[in-house]
């Protein structure tokens, strides 16, 4: 079945470290997206027309443009056009953060605007000062709305890291291809074994996260 190649040399370890590269890119991007995305979302929820217009354009660009095209623009495009020599991993993190910030900001914006004004007013009329109102009334409600959705975004980002091999990053899928190539003669079935293993690795990385999302969603459905 081709699984035997995993036992050869340090192939299994190489696959794992490939997964490590994918996880590193996605987790750094996720961290940036959460921090910057929340800031952008709060600003856009302020209903300033210009801020909202700029944000719409940004969001549409992110949603319309395939991530791969963005990767190519940032990695190959900037080198020629701007003379900036980005390494591939930095370029990937820029692209994934660019995407993640837009989506995260949209989630924050939606959650913030979805809180009825009466929630602020009833807290205020109980004598709660603004900071206390945010701390105990508004933010918990926003988190409950946002966390399941943003976890969904995180798993999508992890999956999409498979694209970064197109700009030369040796992540788990690329490692897999290399192993298959190197063992073409000795294990002609390696493709199945390796790709099945990669499938399993992605599953291991994403499944707990999406279970967590489902759990939180159920716990907070009120």
């Amino acid at each position: 079945m081709g699984f035997e190649v995993l036992a050869k040399g340090n192939n299994a370890l190489r696959l794992l470290s490939g997964l490590g590269v994918a996880m590193r890119i996605s987790l750094i991007s996720v961290a940036i997206s959460i921090v910057v995305g929340i800031a952008i979302g709060v600003i856009v929820a302020g209903r300033h027309p210009a801020a909202f217009a700029v944000f719409r354009v940004y969001l549409e660009i992110v949603r319309i443009m395939p991530q791969l095209v963005l990767l190519f623009i940032v990695y190959f495009g900037t080198t020629k056009a701007l003379g900036i020599n980005l390494d591939a991993e930095t370029a990937s993190i820029i692209v994934f953060s660019f995407w993640g910030c837009a989506e995260m900001a949209d989630l924050v914006r939606g959650a913030l605007l979805g809180i009825p004004v009466i929630q602020y007013e009833s807290a205020a009329s109980l004598g709660m000062p603004p900071l206390m109102t945010y701390r105990y009334v508004i933010v918990p409600q926003i988190l409950r709305r946002m966390i399941p959705l943003s976890i969904n975004l995180i798993t999508r980002m992890i999956k999409t890291t498979s694209l970064v091999m197109m700009i030369g990053i040796v992540e788990v899928l690329k490692v897999g291809q290399q192993i298959i190539e190197a063992n073409r003669k000795s294990s002609p079935n390696a493709a199945f074994g390796i790709f099945a293993t990669i499938f399993f690795l992605y599953f291991i990385a994403c499944w707990p996260i999406s279970r967590l999302a489902a759990y939180l969603e159920k716990k907070w459905e009120n």
Binding site: I118, Q119, S122, A123, A124, S125, G127, W220, N222
Partner: peptide
């Protein structure tokens, strides 16, 4: 405001 209790038309309990 602590001294003034207010109840509104819409149900305004904290849902979480």
């Amino acid at each position: 405001r602590e001294k003034i209790g207010m109840v509104f038309q819409s149900y305004d309990l904290f849902p979480h």
